[in-house]
Design a protein around this nucleic acid. Structure first.
Ligand code: ZN
Ligand code: ZN
Ligand code: ZN
Ligand code: ZN
Lengths: 163, 163
DNA sequence: GCAGAATTTGCAACATTATAACATTTGCAG
DNA sequence: CTGCAAATGTTATAATGTTGCAAATTCTGC
């Protein structure tokens, strides 16, 4: 089980970032998509932690690095990254997080801790099946699923310093 | 099966509205919550159709009726209605829709047609169970679930004027 | 390499959604 | 009636996201 699936536990996060960037380069190359410096830097910023980042947070980072950026700069980069399955938008937070399953066909399910702010992306086939069964029973043609669960992660609800 | 569960099919929508208002009055009375004229009017506006309404759409309606309203007027009414389980916010649309299961403990699942804009709220126990199983396996303490499915409703994907 | 097409970026203004802060009014209990 | 809490009015502002167009860059066919 890759450490990338465990944002709530201590792990070498540099590996998360470098793996995400390596994957992204490969995915873009295979699709003939241009992972330009700005796009790659935005992806890297998004991956700086497992806490989703708002578009204007990204913008502030770019600006502080001397990049002459405006909102469209960021939104365009984020659109590109979303299109190619490299980041997800978390609708309930108006924020963006790196995709933990880039390249794989999947339905993301996001576990959002309201205490520490970290987000874990899960893929669960039985959830996906249950949803498709339910929508199918209504003859609804599913195109996109937004599934975000807010609550407390194990690290936060067992008490930060006990157990 | 109540007609309220079938926004995609022709139905007597006035019944939806009056039932929702009747339910709301009873629920608020039982909880000793004050369903003031503004709050009730906002609820009625939300229920005017099965298409979610943005806060500023509600505001425009109120204004056109001569109500001296500002954004906080609407957001406060919507907060109240959400708190008491009378409306839901659809995160992926930044819009609000009447709760089709007010008073019942439920996990809403929203089927959003991108063509006609109608939203059907479903409650599906096997979906809820699958989600709770998946989050439980990660020792995550679930507090709120956002589940929104975008796609095409039966009326829109079978062709608007055929079978 | 070079001209032309397509994609990407810079830039300014603007649109939409949501909240903060504080004054005023209203409903209700004692 | 009085005093308190809840609700509302009012103004301003914050946060998030988009449009439109011009300039620069990159790709493509030659
Ligand atoms: Zn990590
Ligand atoms: Zn993903
Ligand atoms: Zn109806
Ligand atoms: Zn509901």
């Amino acid at each position: 089980m890759p450490s990338r699936a465990l944002p709530y536990r201590p792990h070498n996060h540099d590996d998360c970032v470098s793996q995400a960037l390596t994957d992204a380069r490969e995915i873009c190359q295979q699709k003939n998509a241009r992972l330009t410096p700005t796009r790659e830097r935005v992806l890297e910023l998004i991956w700086q932690s497992h806490k989703p980042l708002g578009a204007y947070d990204v913008l502030a980072e770019l600006t502080s690095e001397g990049h002459n950026a405006a909102p469209p700069t960021v939104y365009r980069a984020l659109d590109f990254l979303q299109q190619h399955g490299l980041v997800h938008r978390i609708a309930s937070l108006n924020a963006f997080t790196g995709c933990a399953h880039a390249g794989e066909h999947h339905t993301g399910m996001f576990l959002i801790c309201r205490a520490c702010g970290n987000v874990l992306e899960l893929t669960d086939t039985s959830v996906a099946k249950a949803i498709h069964d339910a929508t199918g029973a209504e003859a609804f043609r599913t195109e996109a699923i937004t599934l975000e669960v807010a609550g407390l992660c194990p690290g936060c609800h067992t008490g930060p310093h006990h157990e």
